[in-house]
């Protein structure tokens, strides 16, 4: 096929061109996906387990809670250590997805962000220890966000009030849900 005769059978050539391009593209992506998907899956599970492990280092096993999506019990030798609840809250840009760790008596252990689209270098400051450590040991009644430091309350990150609020509300909702769940199952 050369450039000169494309007028005669251009319809056919256009179709062939696009079909071939799409087919080739499909083959390449399929092959690469076939090769990388298992690795990516392992990485994903590893990252998830790692984030759970980071929250509750002592736990030896994580078992999903029945009837609740992405809720886990962290156990050590059959003894319940903590609940892990997947929370999702609207942040500055899209949702902040995170694991909230809570003790059986519904106090915050910590949280671990799984995915977010907050401003790098600004919004994501709200996921760092300086802000995150404020939650430790608090029940949902004590989770109140303030801009200027106040005893017993959560101080928002400078310039990232919306992300701070998203984290705070996410944790609060997770704890409220947990209490509801525990009351129901009693």
């Amino acid at each position: 096929m050369t450039h000169t005769d494309h007028n005669d059978n251009s319809m056919f050539r256009i179709t062939l061109n696009l079909t071939l391009a799409a087919f080739l593209s499909g083959v390449i992506i399929a092959v690469v996906f076939y090769l990388t998907a298992p690795i990516a899956e392992i990485q994903r599970i590893k990252m998830k387990e790692q984030s759970m492990k980071e929250l509750i280092p002592e736990a030896t096993s994580f078992s999903p809670i029945q009837g609740k999506e992405e809720w886990f019990k962290a156990e050590k030798d059959g003894q319940l250590l903590a609940y892990l609840i997947l929370a999702s809250e609207k942040g500055f840009d899209g949702h902040v997805k995170m694991f909230v760790g809570a003790t059986p008596d519904q106090k915050v252990i910590g949280f671990k962000v799984l995915s977010h689209k907050e401003t790098p270098g600004l919004g994501d400051q709200a996921f760092k220890p300086k802000f995150a450590d404020q939650f430790t040991g608090k029940g949902y009644q004590q989770l109140e966000l303030v801009k200027i430091q106040e005893e017993g309350k959560i101080t928002a990150v400078t310039g990232a009030t919306i992300t701070s609020r998203a984290v705070t509300n996410g944790i609060k909702h997770a704890l409220v849900e947990l209490e509801k769940y525990l009351n129901e199952s009693k």
Binding site: T36, A40, R44
Partner: peptide
């Protein structure tokens, strides 16, 4: 195609 390949590779090896 190239971007998708790059994404798949990054996801697998540099998550």
């Amino acid at each position: 195609t190239i971007v998708t390949v790059a994404m798949l590779v990054l996801e697998a090896f540099l998550p």
